[in-house]
Design a protein around this nucleic acid. Sequence first.
RNA 1: GUGGGAGUAGCUCAACUGGCAGAGCACCGGACUGUGGCUCCGACGGUUGCGGGUUCGAUUCCCGUCUCCCACCCCA
Length: 424
Amino acid sequence: MIKAVRGTRDLLPPETALWNFVESTVRDVFRAYNFHEIRTPIFENTELFARGVGEETDVVSKEMYTWQDQGRAESDKGQSLTLRPENTAGVVRAYIEHNLQARGLNKLFYIGPQFRRERPQKGRYRQFYQIGAEVIGPQSSGSELPARDAEIIELLATLLDRLGITGWQLQLNSIGCANDRAKYNEALRQALEPVKDKMCVDCQRRAVTNPLRVFDCKVPEDQPIIEKLPRISQFLDEPCRRHFAQVQDILKSVGVEFQINDRLVRGLDYYTRTAFEFTHGALGAQNAILGGGRYDGLSEALGGPPAPGIGFAIGEDRLVMSLGKTADDVLRKPDVYIAPLGPGMNKEAARVARELRRHDIVVELGDETFRLKKSLETASKLGAKYALIAGENEISTGVFALKNLATGEQVPVPRPDLAARIRS
RNA sequence: GUGGGAGUAGCUCAACUGGCAGAGCACCGGACUGUGGCUCCGACGGUUGCGGGUUCGAUUCCCGUCUCCCACCCCA
């Protein structure tokens, strides 16, 4: 048997109803904040991710699905392509390519699959789905201002509330601008130098390659050392400090609760200043339901104009897992099951079904060869509100037997009144 | 990529020390010819993840492999 490949999966009904619920709610919320959808290709030139996400990140260095194009045209042949491991780089590429700076501030969202070759685990798949948004534009459009950061974070709080997700936590930090980071990185290296030999092997490696990541360490013995390390907050320059303070002010004003976590560092190189993460307890080790932050230098890193931006990505798979709803809660069941009864009744029942469906009634249709008992059984199994019996009597008199499957009550209803009766 | 656990019917799970592969639920049919939910009866359902080995005999023991789960790692 051919099976879905490792780390991929089929989403089947009724579970897909949950995904549709999430996506339609998300679209409603984005509309209220005046975001518009962007769809970028599912694969891009490998170089985009190498430059955009960062050559040294785990995502780029060991998790990408990359191949040499076999195209027949000379221009296609041999170019290195990659299934997108995230969507921000693609959005910024599109921003540059289509000169979207001419539109001022762009507020974009996307929903779609992403690909990373990691070892699968609960909440971690090789094809997974992200819902994300980016606010990006020239500095004159206000793209750099703290109000944008606050708005996007407040949007997320609203979104989670609308989805009925409770018990989330918002972790907030500022990781400064490029200058701050450089100074801080240097200070960290110096602070780690004398103590790193006492730390775990992972930290010894991190101390050299990417000192910021030392803060991800979960080894208990290392914690006292980590506690004493300098914090990014001490290295923020005055503009970054003020920016972060204003973000916090607005969040407090709108009543979004957060925790400052000065150990929150993010794994993608392009992040600057505001960084945040929403976590949820129902997810086990993969407890980050969404993450995001500011990336003021990304456009330039990709050869574009200065274009400060901030964005986030939600793991849709994890969002669905922490939903606390079942498919049953959001599924629309049939309003009526039509049971044609006896030879020749299929064609009559089909006409009735067509009439009712025009009135936005969800109709399931049986068959004239089914016994009534079977039809009623099927109808209640499907969760239909009503069963409509379409036998010879009903067709000839124009008055149908409409049975409420919850109460068992059955009433005769004239054909013209059926839709209104069923919808009520 | 590293370490550990688990794979038996559509689903949830049994099967003693290696001895005929089972139950509940679901599904299908009947009791019941135009009236469901309850009840009763019956039928269907399996390469025990896959491949090899040991054995008279393997779901059980051994090796390999695949997949899922947990932790690490990383991230959403």
